[in-house]
Write a protein that binds this DNA or RNA. Structure first.
Lengths: 243, 243
DNA sequence: AAGTGGTCTAGACCACGAT
DNA sequence: TCGTGGTCTAGACCACTTG
């Protein structure tokens, strides 16, 4: 196996593929050392920097690990480790070839209830924006989303916006501070009466519960909410690291 | 802000931090272009390769994106996207400061039932290894795991091994083909009577269901199983991309 | 044609581990 | 001391976008 310098595939990527193949077919077994960077450089006629680039890819993919002063070793596959990616709703639906839409159920200023006030770090009773909506794929409810947002007074929200615009765009215009990052917690729950009605399914049926914390650039809380995904219509698939 | 070449923090990382800070504080806003690589190289007294290394980090973290011939631009934060990592059971428990243990309920050769035979691509009735066990943290059941594995005849399994050894080690010794990768599907369900008994909780209570497919190097199926995590004792937290 | 990012090189110095 | 990976440089050529 050699590097084809006339290929459209860059040499660093060719070498990464060669090594990946050799590892996957057992030419190098878990725990074993790969040839040193200098040896690979010599063998494949590439500069050490290019060899290192190939190795970086395999390291990021979790196939190998480098130890300074010792060498580069094949990792043991972590079979019981998995990475799940929850994509943004519209993007996810599009990827599955479904028509995504959302329905606004409620959007109004309310005095912050105790829990929301604590989460948003505002005094209880402070006016905050409360939004309820359902997310639908192919016209059928998939998720039921509820959020509290710190609200910038003086810029009224038009219902139209909430109905038709992407959520981030609305935040950009109306939130007190721009959310820059989001933290989520994934739990599981059984739907109560109200939630089941919103999702047009039966009470007690299992659902994913995604609690979301929206943070501003200074890490102060901007929004807090929770979104329920119907268990019979939603699942996550583990992603495989790619070289 | 400048690079301190005497610092223990390497220059490429210092520059990545500088740029990250500027982006997060709004010096460069979403959609805007960063200075070109040549300009950054000039401004910070670093070679272009080193500047590129800093930028690669920010690209991987999703903060910026590069467009050939055009420039490097600040990305819009993807607030509704999340990445959840399910760690290997023992590692996860250790990270949470809990004592992990597992209890073998059953491990025997059985004629493959229809579903398992299809999943393992063997003829129905072929002898396969069936394993049932519970995973416990601090002595309390957290998960209930059931697996079918293609079995290599002639190497008897000692119950001791299943009880006390890490699962991958057992596979390594006794499976027909070594699993090299794993694919998982994360669902949600309500526990039936048997499952609730195994998890010492009540039937109907919500749980995560993780279906697992173990694959050999040639991508042929080696194992298939499903693991239930008690909803009241397990949740996943989104991870943040780091530079 | 000029500017941008994408790739590659041949060398250098460093920190660390084994001997 | 020697071999290992970790970092950095100053240049080069390329493909692509824009004017």
């Amino acid at each position: 196996m050699a590097i084809d310098k006339n290929s459209f595939v860059p040499p660093y990527y060719q070498l990464a593929q060669i090594l990946e193949h050799q590892i996957k077919t057992g030419a190098y077994r878990p725990g074993e050392a790969l040839p040193s960077e200098a040896e690979l450089s010599e063998k494949y006629g590439l500069s050490r920097m290019t060899v290192r680039r190939s190795l970086s890819h395999l390291i990021r993919a979790g196939l190998i690990r480098a130890e300074r002063g010792k060498g580069t070793f094949v990792s043991r596959p972590e079979l019981d480790r998995a990475v799940f990616v929850m994509e943004e709703f519209h993007k996810d639906a599009a990827a599955r070839g479904m028509a995504a839409s959302s329905r606004l159920l409620e959007a109004r200023l309310v005095p912050a209830p105790e829990k929301a006030a604590a989460m948003l770090q505002v005094r209880q009773g402070t006016k905050v924006l409360f939004v309820r909506r359902t997310l639908l794929t192919d016209g059928e409810p998939l998720a039921y989303d509820r959020k509290y947002l710190r609200y910038d007074q003086g810029r009224p929200i038009l219902e139209n916006e909430l109905q038709y615009q992407a959520f981030p765009d609305i935040l950009e215009k109306h939130a007190a501070a721009l959310p820059m990052s989001s933290k989520m917690i994934l739990k599981v729950t059984n739907l109560n009466e109200e939630e089941a009605r919103a999702l047009r399914t039966s009470p007690g049926s299992p659902a994913f519960l995604v609690e979301q914390f929206l943070l501003a650039a200074d890490n102060r809380p901007v929004g807090w909410g929770w979104c329920l995904y119907r268990g019979d219509r939603y699942q996550l698939t583990s992603v495989t690291a790619t070289i």
